[in-house]
Structure formats: C-alpha cells, structure tokens
Design a protein around this nucleic acid. Structure first.
Lengths: 412, 412
DNA sequence: CTCTTTTTTTCGAGCCTCGAAAAAAATAAT
DNA sequence: ATTATTTTTTTCGAGGCTCGAAAAAAAGAG
C-alpha cells in the first residue's frame, strides 16, 4: 500500500513535471522551467536535452514573443507534435463527434454527425462510435496503430475506472463497456469520462487564475450535470464518476425525475421540468427526453415578459439549484461556480432565485465568494477538456512512467 | 506551486514512511518494514539506525509475540516514548478535558472537568482551557517547554488552517482564535480540529480494514456532526473544517434549526428536534441547547412502545438523515457509515427510516454497501483521534521535515 | 572588436537507494 | 560440544540523481 520512493522515481517525477510545465506554459525557455519547477539549471538542462533527444520536446525558434534584450537569447521549448497522436470522442444526446489531435494539442481532423441516440440499438450505437473513429482517423491520415490514447466523453454516469458508461439519459441502454469494446477493436487504450468533468478540466486550463483548487461547474441542459474540482483535483466517486448534483434530493417525494426517483434537483431545474411546469402539467408527468432550444427561449421570453407559470417555473428551478448549491457548500465550502450550457441563456431569470435560496443555507454567509461565470456553448469545452485529459495521460504514462507510483507513494 | 523534487526529499520522505509504519504496526521488525514500505534492506537498515541514534525509535526486546523459530530472531522496533510529548484538549458542551501523551501514544496524565460552556464569558472559557493545560501538565510532571504540539478538538466549525473555532453550539461566542491564544501563552504549536474529524481518524486507526479510503462518520447528539474521509484523506472545506452535513437543507423553509436557518437536517434529527416533535411543540419553536440523555432514553422508550408523536419524531429524524445521506452519496458514492454518539441508543428506531429514505435517492441502488456501525461513546474516539493527529504531525514535521513539501510536489 | 549580460551546458561533489555479500544470531543436526 | 542451517541485519561498492560553481555560448552595448 504505502510504498517507499525508489531512487529513479525522482527522475521520472521531474520529467513529468517538466513535460507538464511545457504543456501548461506553451513555449517556456529552460530558465522559465527552472523558475516554474524549482529544479536547478543543471537538472532542467539534462532533462530537457533527454526529452528533445527522445522526440518529446523540440526547440522552437523565433516565437515572436522573445523580448529583444542583452544576453544570450532564451530558446523556447515546445511539445513535438509528432511525438504522438490522441483521439477524442464526444457522445451527447443526438450528437457524436470525434477528433484527432497531435501531441502539441493541435486538431488534425474532426468529424461530427447527428445520431438518434434515444432510439438506436446498443450495437448500432457502438458501431456508430467505431465507424466515427475510423472515419476521422482516415481523414487525419493516421492509422489506429499511431494513436496513443483515446478519451471518450459522455453525458451520464461512468464507472470510477473510467472504462464504462453506467447510465446515461441519451439512450435507454446502460452499462456499455466502451473502453473494453474500443480497446479490443482498435488496440489503443481508452478511457470513458463524464462530460461535465471534462468541462471542468477545460476551464482550469483556460483560466487557471480563477479555476484552480476548488470550483464547481454546473451544466444546465435537459438534465443537470456537475463537475467538481477539489484541492486541485477532479473529484470522482468511489464507484462512479460521482458528482450527481442533479440527483441530490431537493424535495422528498417531490417532482418526478428522469431517473425515476422523486424530488431530485433536476426534476425542478432541468429543461423538461421547466417546460412541464410552464405548460401547467403535473410535476409527476413523464419527463421529455429532449426539449429544443427554441422552446426554452420562448419560455424564457414569457418569463421575462410577465408574471405567470413560466416565471414561476424558472424561479422554482433557481430555488432547486440554489438549495442544492447551498447543501453542496455546507459540505465543501463555497467555491466559484461556472454555469455552462443552454440553460445560461435564461440565467438572468434564474440567478436571483438561486442567490435567494443560497442565502437561506449554510453557504449563504459567503455570498461574495459565490460568483457565477457563464459559458453558453459547452461543446468546445468538452472537446478541449477531453483532449487535455488524453494528452496528459500520454505525458505521464508514456514519457514519465512511474510517476503514478510516486504519486501514490506520496499520498499513501 | 508545482515544485521539483530535491534529492534529499527522498530521504525525508522515506524516513517519514518508516516512522508512520512503526506507528501503525506497533512493533515491526526491520524485515516487516521492508515488506511494508517496499524499500530495500539496506535502506531500512540505514534509516532505522539513524532514527535509533536520534532517539526517535528504539529496539524492543522480548515483545512476547516473537515466534520461536530457526534463524536470527527479528528485533522489534518501537517508538521511543521519551522522543516527545504531546497534549490534547477536548472541548465539548459542558465538558473540558486534557491529556498528556508520550511519543509512543501512552497517556501520562489526564484531567476532565465540567464547565458551563453555554453561560461563561469568552475570557473565562479561554482561561479555563489554559488552566486545564497547566493542570494536566503539572500532573504529568512536564513543563510547557517539553510539549512538542497540542491538538484541540472542539464541537463546531473550525477554520481550514485549524487555528480558530469559527462557530460552535457550545457557547454563544464565535471566532475564538484558540491556536494563537494558546501558542502565545505556552509556546508550542497548536491546531484546532473538529471533533467529528478526530472521530474519523480514530476509527481509521482502530479498524483500517473497514475504514480506509472512503467512509463517513455521523455524530448523533443534540446536533448532527460529520467526519468524512475521501481517498484516504480527511476531507475539509476550503475555508472551514467543512462537512456540515447537519446543515444541508432537508426541507426548504422547514423546521427551525439551532443555527438560525430553516429546514436543516439537524432541525429534524438533532436531539432537540426529536424532543420538540415528541412533545408536540411547533417545529419553529426555539431549540434546546442541550437535552439530557435520560429524556432521550425516555422518548426512545415511548417510540418503541407505541405509535405516537415520539415514534413519528424518530421516524422523521431518520428520514432527514436518510435523505441527507442519499444526497451525500449522490455526490461521493456510497461508503460505510459509522454512527457515533448518544443517538445510537435509539438507532434501532431510526435505522428503518434512514434506509427507506436512502432507497428513494441516488444512493439507494447500492444498499448493500451502506452499512451502519454503531459506537455509542464518542469521547474515547475523539481523544484517540486527537492524540493521533498530534503525534502524526510530530512524526512528519519534526522527524522528517520536508516530507510535506515532497507531498505537495507530488500532488501538484 | 571588446565588454557586458543572460542563458545554457559541463563537471565534480555529495547523497541516496540498491543488490550482493558478509556478518550476526538463533535453532537443528551430528 | 560442535557443526550445519536458517533467518535477520549490516556492510560495501556501484550506479543515479540533483546541485552549485564554473565554463561556454550567444546575443547586444559601447
């Protein structure tokens, strides 16, 4: 369990740190790396020349951002694009997309298609993903053998080993072992990740100032998703991807949720919940599997225009989200919240109710810390987070093996 | 932020690991340590002889548990009791206790006194703690200068730096900077910890099989407390000790809680809530600051004997706890639960309601994983956890400095 | 063309861990 | 009583890693 630290773990750890620093910083010089990592010039020099020799890093000249000044000019280091290729697949409601990305993070090829995820069979779904992978691979001019890793983001609950989709609202099928299926088919390692978690990774990469140690991302769509970063690390459950914020209970025995239970936050704040409340249906009526954007915009318009069932529905949605966030903050303390997805288009209507509800909870005392940052379009964030996840896995596993062990040893 | 690993951090890390292994195992031989840590015989030999020379460890002969067999007999290593002294103080409602403990974990002196925490002034409270420390120190024959560290456990919310008591139900005063006050007075470093977190540490030490990576401890008393261990580490909030399970919202706009808000879990499951519901008072009536054990036993007896307000009250308490646990499990996945405190005496009445409620939530699907383990007397657990916290801090900070840095580097 | 400044590499010193071999300390066998 | 065997622990040399200091490299300034 608790393992000692071998001598050569040191080098692996420091190699991993250098690669990670280059990925974060973009094109740092060796001196930048010295400052960033706290290692000595000698060590940085040794490690970076090793990595260049191995084809992981490369020297970049004329980056433009080099300040002209006295002294030997800094040489920027960058990731060698040809060091490897990764694949990402994003599977959402009625949408499937795949991307081939080089080691430096640049997109080489990309495909997207519509797909009736709700109605197709399990096998058709798996076949569609496989066909998508093959298609985008051929677009990119690569073969499966070139791919070092694939990360798949899905809407729904994945297992904690990131190998299977346990449950999802986008298809009635459950327990789809995508990692096994795809690994057998293509041969490269595959992980399956929750979409909101990928959004969280993307936000951290985009704005490390704001999103670093502790933050929450909430996805407002037909369902309610959450990604949670605590102590700088993505939080996942013991058995599943966890973070099922949408299915915390807002009102015992309350409104019918898409998951079949009653009173979940989602059963008040999901698009289908807002729709059925606005239209005057019972909160026990069957949830819609999808509500199109136009409908939601119309309801939001109604809510803004006049007091009535639509405004009440959005207010109740905000209340559910607010009490949920309040309970979450009772556990983890308040943190910045990024609100992502189509629901942000009506966030002006929801936010007052959210804040009012939070004020009634243990989180209320920290009103100032709680800020909402809106990002309407979630797709680019999912793609970006997914790519980062895959690339960072390659960074450590392939180019600094043993890093994982050293980490565990430190934590143990 | 992310720091490289220096060469000598290695030794510090491995020293810390050896000390920690000795503390966990009791009296391991060098060979046991080799197996436990994965380090080589040479390294273990070098580190342990260093530690013996420094007076941190000592060789123990004739431990009795040595199996008689062929070959050179193993020599057990133990913690040198004289290597240091730590102090623990536990401050609960109307109770103050202090203990002096040697480095091996044996209690040298112990004092306990009743104290009307609800009514005394802020200064009197601080003075009482100081007097207690001085008293128990003189009992132990030590001086303040001998003490390497003190850990104080309090009922209530502490700040995340473990230096102040932010809020507590045991006194109307808030924001008491115990760590600063005591450090200025006595000179040794002090941390202030939440009582439930200390219970969690004690349980992990007592039964590492059951309580290791993920588990929950719930304290049922006049208030509801929680200690949460996730990924093997005590979970604390970003600003406070966090884990305010008792103040997650069970019913928006619901029963009046001791914290002044409405609908908290505690406002249904705390002793005062069970009392006022059993006696037919409004759930908006002022909470009692303390309910004595006899009253609770009487109510529990009523509840067992016949259907009526008492039974309803316990059922509602269980429901609140169950929905709360369900929401918690939606976030973190189900985990074993240890239920501690006087509330366990009525747990037979509450448990069915808890399980029924959990079954309605996202945690319900994992019914088998959720098991309740009862410990009625919380005081010994708090003491034990507190002592462990102090001793482990001494282990790393004093005898393996730099370990912390290496950990952070690994995590970063 | 030389001086100054800044970045990067080189080199030797000092630690640390490891494996192999030796030493130590007991029991079992002769 | 002495030798063989077994197991634990220590010793010792090899190999690696990081570090600081010094050297080398590569530019602008004068």
């Amino acid at each position: 369990m608790t393992m000692g630290v071998r001598h050569d773990d040191l080098r692996k750890r420091n190699r991993a740190m250098v690669i990670a620093a280059v990925r974060r910083e973009g094109q740092p010089s060796r001196t930048d790396l010295v400052n960033r990592t706290g290692l000595s010039h000698s060590t940085i020099s040794a490690i970076s020349s090793d990595l260049i020799a191995e084809g992981v890093l490369r020297q970049v000249k004329g980056t433009g951002n080099d300040i002209v000044r006295r002294g030997r000019p800094q040489v920027s280091l960058g990731l060698e694009p040809r060091a490897g290729t990764v694949l990402t697949v994003v599977l959402l409601l009625n949408t499937l997309s795949a991307t081939v990305i080089d080691y430096s993070g640049r997109t080489i090829a990309e495909r997207r298609e519509r797909l009736s995820t709700l109605t197709i069979s399990r096998d058709e779904l798996v076949d569609a993903v496989c066909a998508m992978v093959e298609g985008v691979l051929s677009d990119s001019g690569h073969e499966a053998g070139d791919v070092m890793r694939m990360t798949m983001a899905v809407q729904g609950i994945t297992d904690s080993d990131a190998r299977a989709l346990l449950w999802t609202p986008i298809t009635p099928h459950s327990g789809i072992a995508f990692a096994d299926l795809l690994e057998n088919r293509f041969g490269f390692p595959v992980t399956v990740q929750n979409d909101c978690n990928m959004i969280a990774l993307a936000l951290r990469a985009r704005d490390p100032e704001r999103y670093r140690d502790n933050f929450v991302t909430i996805l407002l769509s037909n369902g309610i998703g959450m990604g949670l970063v605590l102590r700088g690390e993505l939080f996942t459950g013991a058995y599943s991807s966890g973070g099922e914020f949408g299915h915390m209970i807002h009102r015992p025995h309350g409104a019918l949720c898409r998951c079949g239970r009653h009173g979940c936050i989602e059963a008040y704040a999901g698009n289908y919940a807002i729709l059925r409340a606005s239209e005057g249906y019972s909160d026990q009526s069957e949830p819609d599997a999808d509500v199109d954007q136009d409908t939601m915009l119309r309801l939001a318009g109604d809510a803004r225009r006049q007091d009535g069932p639509a405004r009440d529905a959005f207010t109740r949605a905000g209340e559910a989200l607010g009490y949920g966030l309040g309970s979450l903050f009772a556990l983890i303390d308040p943190a910045p919240v990024a609100v992502v997805g189509p629901g942000t288009l009506a966030f002006d209507i929801i936010e007052p109710a959210i804040r009012k509800a939070i004020a009634q909870t243990a989180g209320g005392q920290h009103d100032a810390v709680i800020s909402f940052d809106l990002q309407t379009d979630e797709m680019p964030l999912i793609l970006e987070g997914c790519a980062r996840k895959a690339l960072e896995a390659v960074d450590t596993e392939l180019f600094a093996p043993g890093y994982i062990n050293a980490m565990q040893a430190a934590a143990g």
